Simulated scan of single mutants.
Amino acid sequence: MLEGKIVKGIGGFYYVKSDGEIYECRARGIFRKQDIVPMVGDDVKIRLNKEDETTGYVEEILERRNELFRPPVSNVDQAVIVFALRSPDPNLWLLDKFLILAEEQEIDIAICFNKIDLVSDEEKLEYNRIYENAGYRVLNTSTETGEGIECLREVLSGKTTVFAGPSGVGKSTLLNTVQPDLKLQTGSVSEKTSRGKHTTRHVELMSLELGGYVLDTPGFSSLELDFLTEENLEVYFPEIYSKSEDCRFRGCRHNKEPGCAVKSAVEQGEISEKRYENYLLFLKDAMERRKY
């Protein structure tokens, strides 16, 4: 049997890359009986049909290091979360939702602020400061000027990367700039809604010449974060979690409690006020869910 990686799945067919070749495979019926669905990103063993040796069957799914459900992909090394600094303007509450989801999956995270040619250096630095102070790696890119593209290539090299972010922020254009032969379809931002038009239609791992794979995910603006609770929320905000050890009361929610080190850090500018406001919004949601 051959070992390979599922790089695309459409209509019950799984396209497995092995030694530079792509094989069209069906999954064995035993997977259905065991309620197991092969995922893009799975490392698998396949058995080829003797008649043509270009098609075959997925015989075994090797152990997954991790798995995401939106997008459905496994064995991811990192997430690059892309937001534009203009056209559309960044929604930091939505960005923080993406970060929480990536933190939950325990994968490395980089934030890519795109279209930096449309804003001043001061505005770019302001956004950078918010997330660098939270402990995240921040990239700044522009496909118009080429700034930051080489740095993005270095981040993608040799890794399996989920390229995530809302529609219209320039994910596909960025990847086309990194590797022109990907020829990903790009879309424009609607003038009426200031939202991007969906251009990515299915889940597919694309091989990079510099090594590794990248998954350009469909843009989306709503993520379910049902796993968040009052107790665990701070874990998903690294800068808040690290400060929480200095709070007067154990179990402090950093909301109305006295002697809160987190609130003091916000007042002193050590923690971004915008990030703290978003934390309180997520806390409110978690408290509301708890009532039901």
Score class of each variant (00 low, 15 high):
residue 10 I to Y: 00
residue 11 G to Y: 00
residue 16 V to D: 07
residue 17 K to A: 09
residue 18 S to G: 01
residue 24 E to V: 08
residue 25 C to H: 01
residue 25 C to Q: 01
residue 28 R to Y: 03
residue 29 G to S: 07
residue 30 I to C: 04
residue 30 I to Y: 00
residue 32 R to T: 15
residue 32 R to M: 09
residue 33 K to L: 11
residue 35 D to Q: 15
residue 40 V to G: 05
residue 41 G to C: 11
residue 42 D to M: 05
residue 43 D to M: 10
residue 44 V to G: 03
residue 44 V to W: 02
residue 45 K to S: 15
residue 47 R to E: 12
residue 48 L to V: 02
residue 48 L to N: 04
residue 51 E to K: 11
residue 51 E to P: 05
residue 52 D to F: 06
residue 53 E to R: 14
residue 54 T to F: 01
residue 55 T to S: 15
residue 56 G to R: 04
residue 59 E to I: 15
residue 59 E to H: 04
residue 60 E to F: 14
residue 60 E to R: 04
residue 60 E to A: 08
residue 62 L to S: 10
residue 62 L to Y: 11
residue 62 L to C: 13
residue 63 E to C: 12
residue 64 R to P: 08
residue 65 R to Q: 14
residue 65 R to C: 13
residue 69 F to T: 15
residue 70 R to L: 13
residue 72 P to T: 13
residue 74 S to L: 07
residue 75 N to Q: 04
residue 76 V to R: 09
residue 78 Q to T: 05
residue 81 I to G: 04
residue 81 I to V: 13
residue 83 F to T: 15
residue 83 F to A: 14
residue 84 A to K: 05
residue 84 A to Q: 08
residue 85 L to E: 10
residue 86 R to W: 05
residue 88 P to Y: 03
residue 90 P to H: 03
residue 92 L to Q: 07
residue 99 L to V: 13
residue 99 L to R: 02
residue 100 I to R: 02
residue 101 L to M: 11
residue 102 A to M: 03
residue 103 E to K: 06
residue 104 E to L: 07
residue 104 E to Q: 11
residue 105 Q to N: 12
residue 106 E to R: 13
residue 107 I to S: 02
residue 107 I to A: 04
residue 108 D to C: 05
residue 108 D to Y: 08
residue 109 I to P: 09
residue 109 I to F: 06
residue 112 C to K: 01
residue 114 N to P: 08
residue 117 D to V: 11
residue 117 D to N: 01
residue 119 V to K: 02
residue 124 K to C: 07
residue 125 L to A: 14
residue 125 L to I: 09
residue 126 E to T: 14
residue 127 Y to R: 02
residue 128 N to K: 09
residue 129 R to K: 08
residue 130 I to S: 03
residue 131 Y to E: 09
residue 132 E to N: 08
residue 133 N to Y: 03
residue 133 N to V: 02
residue 133 N to H: 05
residue 134 A to M: 13
residue 136 Y to A: 12
residue 136 Y to C: 13
residue 142 S to H: 04
residue 146 G to Q: 04
residue 147 E to I: 15
residue 147 E to H: 11
residue 148 G to N: 07
